[in-house]
Design a protein around this nucleic acid. Sequence first.
DNA 1: AAATCGCTCAACCGCATATCT
DNA 2: AAGATATGCGGTTGAGCGATT
Length: 401
Amino acid sequence: MGRSPCCDKVGLKKGPWTPEEDQKLLAYIEEHGHGSWRALPTKAGLQRCGKSCRLRWTNYLRPDIKRGKFSLQEEQTIIQLHALLGNRWSAIATHLPKRTDNEIKNYWNTHLKKRLAKMGIDPVTHKPKNDALLSNDGQSKNAANLSHMAQWESARLEAEARLVRESKLRSSHSLPHHQLGNPAVHASSISSASTSAQLLNKIEPSRSTWNGGWSRSTEGSGGVLESPTSTLTFSENAPPITTAGVGENPMAMIEFVGSSSGSSEAGIVKEEGEQQDWKRLENSTHLPEYKEAGMENSLSFTSGVHDVSMSMEGTWTPESLRTSGTGHVLHFGNVMGDQEEEGFTNLLLNNSDDRSLSDGGEDSDNGGGSGSGSDYYEDNKNYWNSILNLVNSPPSDSPMF
DNA sequence: AAATCGCTCAACCGCATATCT
DNA sequence: AAGATATGCGGTTGAGCGATT
């Protein structure tokens, strides 16, 4: 696992690219695709290392890059995703078509981070800096739970990104690379996992998915939901299904065992991989797709992540997730309330002094949200609401998918 | 006009991971 | 299985540029 010599080689140029170099790189990739980045500089007649060429292409030269100012929507997306994913710029970038991870990272570091800090929000935790005030009202628990959810979402994003790459390769494998338009699609992906299950196996352990964009097919009386990260099977009126396959099969089962009432019936979450005790969920009525598929009764969610199994009774909605314990217990207080995207956005915009506020079409008399008193925490609540909304909308909403 | 400061962002660096031999 | 190589990712740097003093 030695490191590649890359730019250590003497004689290779570093620093800013000249227009001539850009032209050479562009011309070569347009004609041949990038192929092996390591071999490219020689073939293209560039005195650069492959790494430098790849970076130049992915961050600057590729034709599908959108440059210029970030829109309000993009800003909001970045902030929300950062709250969920942290500094996982490539994952965030999958939700922002035509923006590179580097660009997003730069924008975060130079604009958004500062803006949040100004607002008294810790840009790392996305919580108010004086969060001690919240420790008694459940908000901290909620934040911790969101962190757990974020891990799941993170895994989902990774797998979805992989699937996108794979599907693009499948659909256009005969095209030169430059026609793929997305630097995320490259040679190394061709040999990647070719099924959802395989994709799942590539996800790092201890993570799983908790929501996603599901496609659906039916098999018999039940059905199969397939997301880029997992396959969900279900059967109506079936009793809870016990975990299967864990142990001899690297694939694990995650079960969603729902109640038809969707009421406050308690649910259970078990994480075998961590030898966690069964944990309870209340009022789980989430994932409208599940309901739509008639899954309120019984679900078997096959995830190839690792030895995690999950059962839920009741259905799961943002409105009703509650927590009753510590650690990994999924217990969401009424974090979500009415789903209004405007909460944090207003807070953000009203506190923004480094950009025009008028282009967002926000009403100036919309409650202020200036970050003090109860409004402040109300805004914070809405902030998380909007994050969760974002999670609930799969990346497939994005034109990129 | 010159010096200084602060900001932006392209590019580099080093590590982690995937793939190849 | 182990080592070598290739690629991807996130943190950091520093050149360039405009604003300020």
